[in-house]
Nucleic acid binder design. Sequence first.
DNA 1: CTGTCGATTCCCGCTCAATGGTAATCCTCC
DNA 2: GGAGGATTACCATTGAGCGGGAATCGACAG
Lengths: 261, 261
Amino acid sequence: MANSASGESIIGRFVKIVSAFDDRHPAMSVAELGRRTGLPVTTVYRLVNDLLLERLLEREPGGDIHIGTRMWELASRGSKMLGLREAALPFMEDVQAVVQHSTTLGILDSDEVLYIERLGSDKTIVDITKIAGRLPVHATSSGLVLLAHSPAAYQDAFLARPLTKFTDTTLTEPAALRRHLAEIRQRGFAAMPGVIVPESSGIAVPVFGPDNTVRAALSVVVPRNEENAPARVPVLMAAARGISRALGWRGELKGTLRQSH
Amino acid sequence: MANSASGESIIGRFVKIVSAFDDRHPAMSVAELGRRTGLPVTTVYRLVNDLLLERLLEREPGGDIHIGTRMWELASRGSKMLGLREAALPFMEDVQAVVQHSTTLGILDSDEVLYIERLGSDKTIVDITKIAGRLPVHATSSGLVLLAHSPAAYQDAFLARPLTKFTDTTLTEPAALRRHLAEIRQRGFAAMPGVIVPESSGIAVPVFGPDNTVRAALSVVVPRNEENAPARVPVLMAAARGISRALGWRGELKGTLRQSH
DNA sequence: CTGTCGATTCCCGCTCAATGGTAATCCTCC
DNA sequence: GGAGGATTACCATTGAGCGGGAATCGACAG
């Protein structure tokens, strides 16, 4: 499935090229693009031209390349995430108005948490979440909530892998994590003081879809020294229920009760 | 640049496939995808497999295909629109809180208005704007504001084309449109009563970047019968200035004054 | 249980688009 | 003016993409 010496398909190279751009490198010359992707120069120039023709990439006056508007448009138009995001946004605004720090919405994707929305850019606290950014599951409150409500088979597979310890409070032992997940299910929320960044805490609650499976995690990041962090939980839970309902969820079903037996 | 009988490149076909999905068709079988794109069956199956491998597309339990999370992630990560959107969102929320109907943020892309954010889903008014949706320039308040502040060369090229008349109030004559654009520049906003949909009016103001060029249009859609529509303008203008400033704009520059001489 | 219809996968020979090295050209900046 | 980098032009090679056709799977009806 590849004409190239390295055995990659064009699609693979396309992904490589687009992946070379991130928030730290939103634009670059074609030559640099070649260096970052490790692809042969000529190939990059040819492929970039194709992508420019389709407007998936755009060339700015200086000659540098950046991701095209068309790319975002195509990715968004048929995306199911738009629905989730639009359902969640009003509730997130309410949370943000009350909690004042930083509110995020994350989903589980490829064994990582992918943040699809984020409100509030409070410079007073350390918050490494970014829209379209990823963080590890076992080191974020969002991730733990998502994992806690995932199918047992998925949890088992996840816990079978070695996990990185970011700070002294990061749980990496499968048994300990399993206990923690059970706790999260029982309490209905996850609170992680300083799991990746020691100075801030995350609190997250699950958002459910119509079939009662977890769709996303709604979370807030607050300074760790803040005493009344648990007081945030009711607000978050109410908002999460609102989002779930907007998605077509109709309250706890018998299935859920059965699970908790 | 194409291996196919029809003379399309893989990238072109990739765009065709992704374009087949929209808000009305967020998921479909591979066979239907083939029908919608008009590509040979075998080819679609092969290409879809490649895209599934890269997670640009995803297969849901039923077998239907939909656009993958990865696609959105890649498109968003290095996109400049995220910055614009994030700068605008808080101000848009303020506008939305006051105006109550529907607030949108649009940019000029391929001679059309592309809406990149939208707040408020008031069912009481007709509003055909959608996130990642497109509307014609000359028939929307956002489009007219963007056009009014575009380079003269672009305006000339645009006005040289034939324009569709949507309702009796749609301006399509180049001369009349030119006068209207001048008016918009002078007043600082565009107000279009029922240009595409007769029942609703749009009001839009420009958002500028650091180089004092227009970046986006901030607009609200209100019911046409509403008398105090012009009263919305100051709110919009203040918000637009706030967004512009967040983007690095530093007030009217000499260049602008020179232009208006 | 059998038949129909559609979706999906498998098969396979053809062929030309993609490949990627090398070299020429166009830049800037010192 | 010339050194260093970015970009374009050229071109022989070749295997990935192509797509028609047939086989398989699956749902549903009679």
